[in-house]
Simulated scan of single mutants.
Amino acid sequence: MELNNHQGWYGETFVAAIAAAAGFQVAVPYPDIGKDLILGRDHEDPDLDVQIALQVKTRRVEEVAETDTGFKITLSAAGYKRLRGKRQVPAYLVMVLVPTDPAQYIRMDEEALVLRRCAYWVSLEQRLPLQQGQKTVTVTVPRDNLLTVDALHKFFARACEEVPAP
């Protein structure tokens, strides 16, 4: 498999593994138009039966632009538009840092399967509009926003708070 496709597939699978550990359903939209994964849960209370959308980007560790507070990632203006603003299905940008060598993506033995490196998230809900003619947008993904099982549960709790009453 070509390296960039391999890397992207691994990143989506990495995030899906976190979602599985959190107990959420994972769906892959077809066609993929700006959202790579839709996470949901089947809840007996319809008000708690919500979804969130994730756009997953991957970067090799040595290629990511780091700042003191996070990681810079450049999106196309079209991709940015699909994630920004308040949405009925909340959307998050997830950046997965991956090892340079795909052979280092996982380590396993009889005790554990370790997926290598980590994922960070950012919500673009409060972002400003684009300038006319702008082709790309650089976003900082905060280092403090590690994507974890607890973070996904918080995304769903927030989405449930925003479900309009009937």
Results as ranks from 00 to 15, higher is better:
51 Q>M: 07
14 F>I: 05
88 Q>A: 13
146 L>Q: 12
133 G>W: 06
111 E>N: 11
164 P>E: 15
45 D>V: 02
108 M>C: 06
116 R>W: 02
114 V>P: 00
16 A>C: 00
15 V>R: 04
164 P>N: 11
106 I>W: 02
78 A>K: 08
147 L>M: 06
16 A>T: 02
81 K>P: 05
19 A>K: 01
27 A>R: 09
125 E>N: 00
70 G>V: 06
47 D>A: 15
133 G>T: 15
146 L>V: 11
88 Q>R: 08
163 V>E: 09
87 R>P: 05
124 L>T: 00
137 V>D: 02
84 R>F: 12
142 P>W: 06
8 G>K: 00
143 R>P: 07
65 A>T: 14
114 V>G: 05
124 L>V: 07
165 A>M: 10
27 A>Q: 06
68 D>E: 13
153 H>W: 11
31 P>H: 07
76 S>F: 13
105 Y>S: 00
128 L>V: 14
103 A>D: 14
123 S>Y: 03
128 L>M: 13
123 S>H: 00
141 V>P: 02
94 V>L: 08
61 V>E: 15
159 A>Q: 10
19 A>C: 01
63 E>A: 10
49 D>V: 02
64 V>C: 08
118 C>N: 09
133 G>V: 05
125 E>P: 01
99 P>T: 15
7 Q>D: 11
99 P>Y: 06
57 K>V: 12
112 A>D: 09
45 D>W: 03
73 I>D: 07
160 C>F: 11
3 L>C: 10
140 T>Q: 08
29 P>H: 04
30 Y>Q: 09
146 L>S: 10
166 P>V: 15
11 G>H: 02
156 F>W: 09
125 E>D: 04
97 L>T: 15
90 P>M: 00
75 L>T: 08
77 A>G: 09
86 K>F: 01
158 R>W: 14
82 R>F: 14
53 A>H: 05
140 T>I: 14
88 Q>S: 11
159 A>F: 13
45 D>H: 02
80 Y>I: 01
